[in-house]
Amino acid sequence: NQASVVANQLIPINTALTLVMMRSEVVTPVGIPADDIPRLVSMQVNRAVPLGTTLMPDMVKGYP
């Protein structure tokens, strides 16, 4: 099973992602692959992302 990117904390709308905000976890449904975490750094979320939420491609501005 492939690990996905999961919010490690509440991420407010328009926040630029940092490594501490994300963790990898095997979840269903599958979200953004954990391998993409380095690419996500400094990209902004377009909505508030609660703790434990799987990051989906449509939540991150400019992804992929």
Rank of each mutant, 00 (worst) to 15 (best):
P64G: 13
P38W: 15
P57R: 09
T54F: 03
T53R: 13
V5N: 00
A34F: 08
T54V: 07
I32G: 01
T54E: 01
V60A: 01
M59Y: 08
I32K: 00
I32D: 00
V6S: 03
P38E: 12
V30S: 09
R47L: 12
M59P: 00
V26Y: 07
L55R: 00
G31I: 01
S24T: 11
P29T: 05
P29M: 04
R47V: 14
A7V: 09
L51T: 10
Q44H: 15
V49I: 12
T18S: 14
I13W: 08
P12W: 04
G31T: 01
Y63E: 05
M56H: 09
L10H: 10
T53K: 09
V26I: 12
D36Y: 10
N46T: 15
M59D: 13
V5L: 03
P64M: 12
M56D: 04
V6A: 03
K61M: 12
T54H: 03
I11G: 00
M43K: 11
N14R: 10
T28C: 04
D58I: 15
A48Y: 12
L51I: 13
D58F: 14
T15D: 03
S4W: 02
A48H: 13
T53N: 08
P38Q: 12
D35R: 07
Q2G: 14
V27A: 06
A7K: 01
A48C: 07
T18E: 10
Q44K: 14
V45M: 06
D35A: 11
M56G: 09
Q2T: 13
A3M: 11
P29S: 04
T28R: 10
D58A: 10
T54C: 04
E25K: 10
V5F: 01
I13K: 12
R39S: 13
I13G: 13
A16T: 08
V30M: 10
L17M: 08
V27W: 03
I37K: 06
Q44A: 14
G52F: 05
V5W: 02
N1F: 14
M43Y: 13
I32F: 03
N46A: 10
V41P: 02
G31Q: 02
M22W: 02
V49E: 02
V5C: 04
T53Q: 11
I11K: 00
T15H: 09
P38A: 11
P29I: 06
I13T: 10
Y63P: 04
Q9E: 12
P38H: 15
M22C: 03
